[in-house]
Write a protein that binds this DNA or RNA. Structure first.
Lengths: 216, 216
DNA sequence: ACAGCGCTATATCGCTTCGATATAATGATC
DNA sequence: GATCATTATATCGAAGCGATATAGCGCTGT
C-alpha cells in the first residue's frame, strides 16, 4: 500500500523520504500517521525492485523533463532552491555522508504504479481505498468507475451484515456500532455522488431516450 | 490493541479464538478484518504473560466462581448468556472437538485489561479509540470523560491542520481530503453528544440549561 | 449411501507496518 | 554562541495482515 502511495507521489516530482511523509500527512491527510519505519524500508524495497532510483539530489538525470531535479522544488522563489543545490553539492559529494537521497520514479516504477493502482490488493479498509481514489486521475474512466462501484458494494454489504445484531450491547458499544454504521452510510452517499459525477463526465451526451422504434 | 480487545471480550465470558474473531467482526464491527494470524499469536502471547488460561473446553476448572466451567456458559442467568449458549450449542454439539481451546481471563488479566484501557497507547487512529470506547463501561466516569475529551482534542487539531492546504490537488484527491474532513467533523459532533450525555449522567444537578439540544 | 461443499476451528509463514529510538546537520531564537 | 526546533536518514523489535495448511463435522444433492 505504501509502495503505491510513494510511487504516486513520485509521479509528480522527485522527492526524498522526509518530504514523502510530509505530503502523505499534510497534503493527502490519509496515511496521516505513517512512520519512517515504514517509509525508508519501502524506499529501499522499491529501489531494489528497480521502481525508483536514488540520486544525490544534485544530478539532473536525462530524459525526465516533467519535474525539477532540485530536492526542495521551491513553490515560490528559487533562491532557497539554489541554496539547496549548493548546499547539497557541498555536503554530499561522497556517499558516506549522511545526506539527502532524492528518489525518482523509473519507467518500471510507472508500470508498477499502474499495476498496483488497478489490480493491487484490498479495497476493504478505508485507507487503501482513499489512497487509490486520491490517485484516480491516473486511471482510465472505466477503471475509476469499477473502483468506486466495487467499494460501494463492499460498504453496502457491510451495512447489511451489521444491523442484524445490535442486541446485548451496552450504551457505549452500541454507540460505537451505531456511529460506525452512520459513517458507512455517509460514505455510500459520498460514493454515489462521485459515481454520478463520473457518469456525467463520461457520457455528457445522454443516450437518446425512449425512441426505440425509430432506429434509422 | 488486540490484547485489550481479547481481554475485554473474555471479561464477559470464556471464549475460543474463532468466537473471539466472530464477536470482533460481527458484534462490534470495529476490527472487522482482524485476522487469525493476529488472534492466535495474541492468545499465545497473553497466555504466556499469564493474563489468560486455556482449558480444553470440557474440564471444569477449579476455583473460579465468577464464570461457569462450561466454555459457552452464561456468567449469570442473563438472557445474553442464554443466547450465547444456544448459539454455541448449535455450532458445537460435540464437546470433544479437535483441539478446541477455551480461554478464560485470569486475575492478572483483569488487571492488565484495566491498565491497557486507561493508560495504554495511542488514541490516534479511529480503531483503537472506538475499541476503547466500546469497553468504556469498565472505566470510571472521569476516565471516560478524559478519554472522550482527549479524542476530541486530537480530532479538532487534525481538522485545524488539515484545511490549511487544499490547493494544488486534483478533483479526486480534493474529494478525498474533503470527505475526510467531513467525517472528522461528524466524529466531533458525535463526541460532543457523548460528552454531554456523560456530563448529564455524572452531575444531573447543577447544569444551568442554556441551549438544550443544540450542539455547540 | 456417500461425495462434495461449506462452516467451524487452530495454526504457521513471510512480509508490511508501527512506534520508539539514535544520530546528525542546519536554521532560528534569545 | 548556546540552545532549541526542524529537517533528514536509519534501524530495531514487536504487532498485525493475508495466504495457506490442516481437519472435523453437518447439510445437500444424486
Amino acid at each position: 500500500m505504501l509502495d503505491m502511495a510513494i510511487l504516486g507521489l513520485l509521479e509528480d516530482r522527485d522527492l526524498h523520504g522526509y518530504e514523502i511523509r510530509r505530503q502523505l500527512r499534510d497534503n493527502l491527510g490519509i496515511l496521516a500517521n505513517v512512520s519512517f519505519g515504514s517509509i525508508y524500508p519501502a524506499l529501499t524495497r522499491l529501489e531494489k525492485a528497480g521502481a525508483v532510483a536514488a540520486t544525490d539530489g544534485s544530478s539532473s538525470a536525462p530524459g525526465a523533463g516533467q519535474s525539477a531535479p532540485v530536492p526542495e522544488a521551491p513553490p515560490t522563489g528559487s533562491l532557497s532552491g539554489e541554496l539547496a543545490v549548493l548546499r547539497a553539492r557541498r555536503h554530499s559529494p561522497s556517499r558516506a555522508r549522511r545526506g539527502k537521497k532524492v528518489y525518482r520514479i523509473t519507467e518500471a516504477g510507472r508500470l508498477l504504479f499502474t499495476q498496483l493502482l488497478t489490480e493491487g490488493g484490498s479495497i476493504d479498509d478505508a485507507r487503501s481505498f482513499s489512497l487509490r481514489l486520491a490517485f484516480a486521475r491516473h486511471l482510465a474512466p472505466q477503471a475509476r468507475m469499477a473502483l468506486l462501484e466495487r467499494r460501494r458494494a463492499i460498504l453496502v454489504q457491510r451495512l447489511a451484515e451489521a444491523d442484524s445484531s445490535n442486541v446485548e450491547l451496552d450504551v457505549y458499544a452500541r454507540s460505537v456500532v451505531q456511529h460506525t454504521a452512520d459513517s458507512v452510510t455517509q460514505d455510500i452517499i459520498w460514493l454515489d455522488r462521485l459515481i454520478a459525477a463520473e457518469r456525467a463526465a463520461a457520457g455528457p451526451v445522454p443516450v437518446p431516450v425512449t425512441q426505440e422504434g425509430d432506429i434509422r
